[in-house]
Design a protein around this nucleic acid. Structure first.
Length: 423
RNA sequence: GGAGGGAUGGGUGAGUGGUUGAAACCGGCGGUCUUGAAAACCGUUAGCCUUUAAAGAGGCUCGGGGGUUCGAAUCCCUCUCCCUCCGCCA
């Protein structure tokens, strides 16, 4: 959520930044009038409340002296009616204003390239080189079933499309990847592991920005206020909601392994084959809570922490800065890590690292205090460290051999009892 | 699922309609004393919003929402969460 005062004082700038993102600015059309009217009503109500508070005290005093207060009571009854109606009116303006603010995406940081689609993203760096194959490489959705480690047909039977069953070494590889990533981030990168609920309530989803706008992307449990998390960013970022942390505690760095659930509404027909786009996938997520002035350097280190996972696994990847038109709702700046996939002949997203600045902090009321100073909004960052399902398929595809087997990356072998080859 | 009890400031916890935004204690901060520290003593210690150049003034908040009243932490309704007992259960 953007700061109300900031929007009031920088309306044209806000509109320009929204246009850069390709977001509609029409919601802001009535903003100035709404904002002015709301404050007018509020002052009116507050003046009357001040009078009421004063007279109520007087009534108490007079009553103690046994004096007649009926005239004052009558006056207060009238005043009470006025206050109620002003309050009611003010509330509707307040809600309208809040709805506007809740629907606005974050403003892009000045370093973000302006563009209207993924075509405007800019490569920052890359690591490794795509392998040259002496034989036609198979896509993982053929190789996996052939190796007996991946089963889409039975998954469709028990659940439906966009689900997968991992079997035998396939299941173990998924688990090994989770442990490998968590160990790297906790032992070497200073993150504290958390295991949060995979279901959360609406307030939590509002805090990170999924609600109210993106309810359609989520799964909701019928007749409850529980939703399946689309990413661990949601429960973990909300961990300190409505709290005021000490400046010395920051940065707080968490990593979390969770399943993630996405309805993938609006993406029918995209990546229908294979593991790329599933209703459920597992992910290790990185979340940071930082001082405002440190958040961009923390974004750089978080992106490196995620890249380290791919480097240790020997997977070629590149880092791109998402342009204004391709960024997520809550982000001010996002780096995507894209891994090389032989089946696509291209780099595909495997991690997304975002600095949300104070956008989520305002929604979730995440604050900190320096010494005895006034409380301030902290900054939140999140990034995949990294998506496990996509790492699984990247390994299968990039490490496949001509005989149909798959070599296990060395870093992973300790997690698989030394297994060096699948198939 | 059934029965009962709770939710107050950083913590414990008083407060059942009228200077109570809130006693007391603990904790935190500042000070006195001390070579230093501890103890003791004194002082101080919520958040948000409106208005203002500032100082200040005002409003709201005692789990959330609604109601009664001139006036609500206190009364009523409702929701959420927590605790205890029974049942069920990985």
């Amino acid at each position: 959520m953007l700061d109300l005062r900031f929007v009031r004082e920088n309306l044209e700038l806000v509109k320009q930044k929204l246009k850069d993102r390709g977001a509609a600015t029409s919601v802001l059309d009535g903003f100035e009038d709404l904002d002015r009217e709301r404050r007018r009503l509020l002052s009116g109500a507050e003046e009357r409340k001040a009078r009421r508070n004063k007279v109520s005290g007087e009534i108490a005093a007079l009553k103690q002296q046994g004096r007649d207060v009926s005239a004052l009571v009558t006056e207060m009854q009238q005043l009470g009616t006025e206050i109620a109606s002003l309050d009611r009116e003010d509330k509707t303006y307040d809600e309208k204003l809040r709805d506007i603010l809740a629907a606005l995406p974050n403003l892009p940081h000045e370093s973000v390239p302006v563009g209207d689609s993924a075509a405007g993203n800019q490569e920052v760096r890359h690591w490794g080189e795509p392998r040259h194959f002496d034989f036609p490489p198979m896509p993982h959705w053929e190789l996996g079933p052939k190796l007996g480690i991946l089963d889409f047909e039975r998954a469709a039977k028990i659940a439906g499309a966009r689900f997968a069953v991992y079997t035998g070494v396939g299941a173990r590889l998924e688990r090994a990847l989770a442990n490998f990533m968590l160990d790297l981030h906790t032992r070497e990168h200073g993150y504290t592991e958390v295991l949060p609920p995979f279901m959360v309530n609406s307030a939590t989803l509002f805090g990170t920005g999924q609600l109210p706008k993106f309810a359609g992307d989520l799964f909701k449990i019928e007749s409850t206020d529980f939703w399946l998390i689309p990413t661990a960013e949601v429960p973990v970022t909300n961990l300190y909601r409505d709290e005021i942390l000490e400046a010395e505690e920051l940065p707080i760095k968490h990593c979390a392994w969770t399943a993630c659930f996405r309805s993938e509404a609006g993406s029918y027909g995209k990546d229908t084959r294979g593991l790329i786009r599933q209703h459920q996938f597992q992910k290790v997520e990185l979340v940071k809570f930082t001082l405002p002035e440190k958040s961009y350097e923390e974004l750089e280190s978080m992106t490196r922490d995620a890249g380290e996972v791919l480097e240790r696994l020997g997977l070629p990847y590149r880092v791109v800065t998402l342009c204004t038109g391709d960024m997520g709702f809550s982000s001010a700046k996002t780096y995507d890590l894209e891994v090389w996939l032989p089946s696509s002949g291209d780099y595909r997203e495997i991690s997304s690292c975002s600095d949300c600045e104070a956008f989520q902090a305002r929604r979730a009321n995440l604050r900190f205090r320096r010494g005895r100073g006034k409380s301030e909004w902290l900054h939140t960052l999140n990034g995949s460290g990294v998506a496990i399902g996509r790492t699984w398929l990247a390994i299968i595809e990039n490490y496949q051999q001509e005989d149909g087997s798959v070599v296990v990356p060395e870093a992973l072998r300790p997690y698989l009892d030394g297994l060096d080859r699948i198939g």
